[in-house]
Design a protein around this nucleic acid. Structure first.
Lengths: 111, 111
DNA sequence: TGAATAGTTGCAAACATTATCAAGTCTTGC
DNA sequence: GCAAGACTTGATAATGTTTGCAACTATTCA
């Protein structure tokens, strides 16, 4: 039952392919956060946040621990930070390369 | 104008979230390939390959150039390689951390 | 105990992505 | 010109993902 590595990579990237999940990982790679803290920082419904956290948990990218009334999340693999930085590098590269012409990236919210 | 960076990142990762597209990028990050060469190396229908290439083109991750009878693809941003390597690092981290329990991820193939 | 806060789960509708087949363009070589 | 090879495009059914609401569990605190 072994999955080829390129497929595992695809799964990993798919897991990262959601704005809320990126935000979560960015925040968690700074420091651990309780769910309600994330909720204050990310504009999303509680249940939706919970579901995105579940996705990240399933992929073992984050872990959770109940501490009294709150549940604290942490990134389980520190290298996640590298991945996010690499992504930023690529985006800079692309943007630099094409100036500002028509992008497929749909403009919506701010921040 | 600007799309929030975290959203652009999510788009980027989403683009990478498909096994065929990962394969394509892995192959192209070694050297340029004509479509029919990719076709020989990846088990996929021509029309499907074409569609995946279109996705990568739209995101500006690859560029294509017609050379006589063939169309040659190249990665447009060399840093893509870093991203793929970072992904491999994370997968190793996860796999190492959890041994072989879940069996959702097991490395077999190369790269 | 009961109210309030903190999170999670289930589910159905809305939405996006993928695979496949048929049809079309472009280029080479005869 | 025209057949063959190399690719792309369009349409569509099948599948997968996301969202939002309601309901539910767990913990704290008064």
């Amino acid at each position: 039952m072994s999955v080829p590595l390129y497929q595992a990579k695809a799964e990993l990237f798919k897991t990262l392919g959601h704005p809320a999940r990126i935000r979560i990982l960015e925040l968690l790679s700074e420091r651990d956060h309780a769910v309600h803290e994330l909720l204050d920082l990310i504009d999303i419904e509680p249940s939706s946040l919970s579901q995105q956290l579940a996705v990240l948990r399933r992929t073992s990218l984050v872990t959770s621990a109940r501490v009294g009334g709150e549940v604290i999340y942490s990134v389980s693999v520190p290298e996640v930070r590298d991945l996010l930085l690499a992504a930023r590098g690529i985006l800079s590269g692309i943007i630099a390369a094409q100036g500002e012409l028509g992008s497929e990236l749909s403009p919506t919210a701010t921040s």
